[in-house]
């Protein structure tokens, strides 16, 4: 069971990291309205995934912390949003956006690979509880990947050629 425990831990870490990244992107790109709003919706999925992974972890004697608190409206958050508004009228901000979408894509894709590992192992070991968790969460991770990919496809031509 050690391998499953390690993977659960890594994925739990990955989902929490993705949630933080999505929320940070939402703030940093306050003037990219679709990115801002959808990132926050997608962060909710990662938050739920982390909570459910922590719950699942208990069956394996793992003590994974619960979900992170809401990203506080701290000085950094305020700064990020102000910077977004100040930068929002510059074409160079487009490069930063593409960079951030790329990192979201990679982060979500990394999580997806971990879900895949868990799914395979759950089937092999007939771990129905784990399989149910993967079946319910992995599709959402794939949707996060596709979203980042679609946004990159749609935005890159204008942001890179319009510099």
């Amino acid at each position: 069971m050690n391998g499953v425990k390690l993977t659960l831990r890594a994925l739990h870490h990955g989902e929490r990291a993705l949630e933080r990244r999505l929320l940070a992107v939402a703030q940093r790109h306050r003037t990219e309205h679709e990115i801002h709003h959808v990132s926050r919706d997608l962060a909710r999925w990662s938050r739920e995934h982390a909570a459910r992974l922590a719950e699942q972890g208990r069956h394996y004697g793992l003590d994974l912390s619960g979900p992170a608190g809401h990203l506080p409206a701290d000085a950094l958050a305020v700064l990020r949003e102000r910077a977004a508004v100040a930068m929002g009228r510059r074409r160079e901000a487009g490069l930063l956006l593409l960079h951030d979408l790329r990192s979201l894509y990679l982060s979500a894709a990394g999580n997806s690979v971990h879900w895949e590992m868990l799914a395979q192992t759950a089937q092999a070991t007939k771990d129905t509880g784990l399989l149910a968790l993967v079946s319910s969460c992995h599709p959402q991770t794939l949707r996060q990947v596709r979203w980042a990919n679609t946004m990159i496809k749609n935005l890159a031509p204008q942001l890179l050629s319009g510099l």
């Binding site: 309205h33 679709e34 204008q158 050629s161 319009g162």
Partner: peptide, 20 residues
């Protein structure tokens, strides 16, 4: 046809950001 035709809200964003 490399991407869906640009929607109006995105066009205004491109204008705001300076590439349109």
């Amino acid at each position: 046809h490399y991407a869906p035709p640009t929607h109006a809200m995105q066009m205004f964003r491109y204008a705001e950001q300076g590439s349109l």
